[in-house]
Simulated scan of single mutants.
Amino acid sequence: MAAHVHITPVHRVTVTGTTAWHQVVAASMAHDLPGVPPPGPGQIHAQLTKPALGSRRLTWMATDEDGTAVGVAGLRLFTQPGQEHLAELELHVAPGHRRRGTGSRLLSAVVAACRTENRRSLVVAAGADGPGEAFAERWHFKPVLTLDHLIMELDRLDQDAIRREADAEHPGYRLTGWTGTVPDDLAAALASAKNAMNDMPMGDVDYGHVEWDADRVREMARVVAGRGDTLLTLAALHDDGTMAGYTEIVLPHGTSPQAQQYDTAVVPAHRGHGLGLWLKAAMVRRLRAEHPGVAAVETDNAEDNVHMLAVNRELGFRAYRRTREFQLDLAVN
């Protein structure tokens, strides 16, 4: 039956194509991840037209004999030094068109492109114990990382506890914050703090090494703004002028009530002082004051990142699903 499906590279994004892509993704996620809101059409358009930081994107669409989109695949090719070996896959097939070879043909196109681009590692995320995991295992992807996804519903938090944590004294440290691009006088300090993320537990993912500098942190903010999202940052500054830690929240374009937690990091030399919980509690207070339409925040942590999991649970996050990351070693496949 897959012989009647056409796999076509997408070279130009149109309104019709974006709508078709969104319909496939929404149907796929409703089936595989019930309760998880899919990206809206505007987010899909930004994803297809605005490359993520340090990468470029290739895309394919599978259509049936009537020209209806039944599957999509997106390939992120990392271009940052230290990650040129890496590619990341997103693949969706409409539930009513599965088990007909459509996903396999999309994957074949992706793997061929990876080989052309001299990539040795292809990673993909899938809901734990779901159809995506079974598909990945069937094609000899190896599980390399398990992520716990947590959600924090702001109206259900203990507001007195949040206030106490946000107002707690941390001698030698002070909080500062901004929206969008980091102020020039903090750009180098933020880059240094971001490099502290390189010791974050990543399982067996062949992720490579990312080196942050002032230009890269500015570019990251431009990428977020370019797709219409809003980046909020709070940072803890030490009296010696260094940035001891920071936390980031992204508000999706439009009126989505759910925000996304990006990085939270505390520099190794400043750990053990409760800065992570302080930063996160202060961010909750900022969200409630500046963005009252935000009802929830989602985050994810590697299951072996026990410290950050403990911080998030103490703050009020609760686990609600799991995903696993799988990796295909293209050097031996």
Rank of each mutant, 00 (worst) to 15 (best):
A2F: 12
A166E: 07
H11A: 09
V311C: 04
G180I: 11
N198C: 11
G127Q: 10
H92D: 14
A193H: 15
G96I: 00
V266S: 06
L147K: 13
L287P: 02
A214R: 01
T323E: 14
T8V: 14
S192V: 14
V223E: 01
E211R: 11
P41T: 08
T247K: 01
A2L: 11
H238T: 03
N118R: 15
L122W: 11
A2G: 15
Q43V: 09
I44K: 01
L309F: 08
G172P: 05
E314M: 09
A73C: 06
T242G: 06
L145V: 09
G42I: 02
G74M: 12
Q83M: 12
M197N: 10
R285D: 12
P39A: 02
G228D: 06
L330P: 01
R164P: 02
R216M: 05
A20N: 07
F78R: 11
R98A: 00
Y246W: 08
D240G: 10
G82D: 07
V250L: 05
A20E: 07
D329C: 14
P9Q: 04
R163K: 10
P257G: 01
R321D: 12
H22V: 00
L48W: 14
H11F: 13
L53A: 11
V13P: 03
G272L: 07
E137C: 06
V223L: 00
E153T: 15
E90F: 13
T18N: 05
A269S: 15
F135A: 01
F326Q: 08
Y262V: 09
E117S: 07
F141T: 00
G103F: 10
E303A: 08
E90A: 08
P41A: 06
N198Y: 10
G42S: 04
V5I: 15
L328D: 13
H170E: 00
E117R: 09
G101A: 08
A281Q: 05
A191H: 11
A244I: 07
A214F: 01
L186C: 13
V267T: 08
L53T: 09
V123T: 15
E314W: 10
P268Q: 06
H22I: 00
V24E: 00
F317Q: 00
A112K: 14
W178C: 04
A113Y: 10
G228Q: 03
A73Y: 04
P39R: 09
L237W: 09
H97V: 00
R120G: 08
E133N: 01
G130H: 12
Q260S: 13
L328I: 14
M243T: 03
A94V: 04
A26P: 00
S28T: 02
P268K: 13
H6F: 14
R138G: 05
L77V: 15
C114G: 12
R324T: 11
V250C: 06
D229K: 04
G35M: 02
A134M: 05
A112E: 15
D304M: 01
E219D: 03
N195V: 14
H149F: 15
R119V: 05
E153I: 14
T59W: 09
V36C: 04
R99K: 02
T176I: 09
A113P: 01
W212S: 04
A62S: 05
A295G: 15
K142P: 02
V111R: 15
H31G: 00
F141M: 04
L315C: 12
G130T: 11
P51F: 07
W278G: 07
N333W: 13
W178N: 05
